[in-house]
Computed example of a mutant assay.
Amino acid sequence: MAQKAAKTLAARNTQILNRTLSVSLAVHAFYLLVRLILFRASFTRNSFITYLLLWLPAAFIQFQFERIGRPTYVSGAAGERKELKKSGDDLEAKGLTEWMWDVLYWTYGCTILVAVLGDWAWWWWVVIPLYSGWLAYTTFMGAKGGMAGMTDSAGVPQGGASKRSQKLEKRGGQKMQYR
């Protein structure tokens, strides 16, 4: 079973991307149907432009997920079976990918709120830059705190010897036996 991990990742990425596309289409359809049918009077040109502008980051993120996560296949020998060429990057990775999922889900939620409650609900979208700033701050402070342990109070780098090594040095060092 060659490339089992790559094939598993490719199958999982395909499933995640197909589900994301379905959810995105459902959210768009819900927004447009509710705003065009139920709240037609409040659906103005300005509200549609706001909708498009605030969906641009989510559309960009979805495009990036498709680009980096969608597996690619090549035809096998004599056109038999398609072989996996590239499984794509892991869409469940931590860090930037996780943040991009957060932005996408928050945009879905804001769009549903706007469809039901009105245009003022777009203000909930402001949470995204605030959340991003908080993540950047905590990451920076965590890295700064991690670096603080590398020096002593005078600013001189610590030796980095383990406690075991320090105990052995106190006892006179490690003794070698020769035969």
Results as ranks from 00 to 15, higher is better:
A148C: 01
V74K: 15
A148M: 10
F43N: 05
W101S: 04
V126F: 11
M150N: 10
A77S: 13
L53A: 14
D89H: 12
R81F: 14
K82H: 06
P129F: 09
Y131L: 05
F43Q: 01
R40G: 03
P129G: 13
M100G: 01
T138I: 10
A41S: 15
F43D: 00
Y137G: 04
M147N: 13
K94V: 01
E92K: 15
Y131F: 15
A41P: 01
T107K: 10
D102P: 00
A161D: 14
W123T: 10
Q158T: 11
G160F: 09
F43G: 00
R81A: 13
N46L: 08
D152F: 06
K82I: 00
W101H: 14
M141N: 08
L53G: 13
Q64M: 07
G79L: 04
T72E: 09
G149W: 10
P71T: 01
Q64F: 00
A154M: 05
G142E: 03
G76C: 05
P57C: 02
W123S: 15
L117F: 14
F48H: 01
R40S: 08
G95M: 14
G155V: 03
M147T: 03
L113M: 14
T50R: 11
L91F: 04
A154T: 12
F39M: 01
M147E: 10
Y131V: 02
R81H: 15
Y137T: 09
A93G: 09
F63H: 15
E98Q: 12
V114R: 04
I49G: 01
I68G: 01
A154S: 15
W101Q: 02
D89N: 13
L84N: 06
I68V: 14
V103S: 03
K144G: 00
L53P: 00
G95V: 10
G69F: 00
P57N: 11
W122N: 08
A154N: 11
K82Y: 03
Y108L: 00
G159D: 15
S162M: 08
G69N: 09
Q64N: 09
G76F: 04
L117N: 09
L54R: 03
L130I: 14
I128T: 11
G88Q: 06
R45F: 12
E92S: 08
Y137K: 12
G149M: 05
F65E: 02
S132D: 02
F60K: 07
S87N: 08
A93K: 13
A77T: 07
W120F: 11
I61P: 07
W122E: 02
G145T: 06
E98T: 06
L96D: 07
E83D: 09
V126K: 08
E80D: 15
T50M: 05
A136K: 12
I61A: 09
L91Y: 03
V126P: 01
A41I: 08
Y108W: 15
E83N: 06
G146Q: 03
E80L: 12
E98S: 12
F39T: 05
W101V: 01
